[in-house]
Design a binder for these strands. Structure first.
Lengths: 115, 115
DNA sequence: TTCGAAGTTCGTAAAACATCGAACAAGCTA
DNA sequence: TAGCTTGTTCGATGTTTTACGAACTTCGAA
């Protein structure tokens, strides 16, 4: 479990980001992270097997949408809001607003832990 | 070749639109149409077979991104800018700006016809 | 050092997608 | 009517995506 590679802003591509955000589970994950707070992997709740959740988080990470930090055996995920905004201005907000208005990604949430 | 069905604005889904806009050919088509002018099918130039182009135009149409109008054997395509804007505010512009800055979809263009 | 917890990776299977050429349907035109 | 033009649809193929469980790796705890 080595530290995963994250793309620099200039390495992000529109197509990869659009692809990453065209799956309801991943949009749900992004919504959960949209308050800017870093979340523990285990805190994330989605109706898929953990290997599948790992896969989705990888797609988001590889596209540059999220950043994953390792700490011991745990890892923490956060949205790369500023990087996305500088690279693709307005895109993330437009998607988040649309997802909110449309109730996309509600199947994803947080486990009830002491926040 | 009956008139194709187009989704009403309330039938459009974010996921379908994001999916439609996560392919470079389709982003290129949207860019070509982004000046708001209606274009003839035959005017559209993309490095794929015509059956494939037809497929891409269908994905865009089914997602609600474009409208296709039939006239005799010809058909004409246009961007549904206002519908998209009302349904997903800011999304199309963000994608178009990013695509422009990033040179996404340049393989798509117009045939040199008397405009 | 043995065990459990946390994620990732692997192997696999099913579905979706992109692509092509061929066949087709519908409307002009000769 | 016969033929041409314009796009769509069909059938096939290879790739990508989503998904699962099992196996694996790391680290922390007992």
């Amino acid at each position: 479990m080595k530290q995963a590679r994250h793309p620099e802003p200039h390495e992000m591509t529109l197509i990869a980001v659009m692809g990453a955000l065209s799956d309801p589970i991943r949009v749900g994950l992004v919504r959960v992270l949209s308050d800017g707070r870093e979340r523990g992997w285990g805190q994330l709740r989605a109706p898929v097997a953990k290997s599948t959740l790992s896969h989705h988080l990888r797609i988001l990470r590889d596209a540059g949408v999220t950043r994953t930090r390792q700490e011991g055996t745990r890892c923490y995920v956060e949205l790369r809001r500023a990087d996305l905004e500088s690279r693709f201005p307005g895109l993330l907000d437009a998607v988040l607003n649309a997802a909110h208005a449309d109730d996309v990604g509600l199947q994803v949430g947080l486990n009830d832990t002491a926040s």
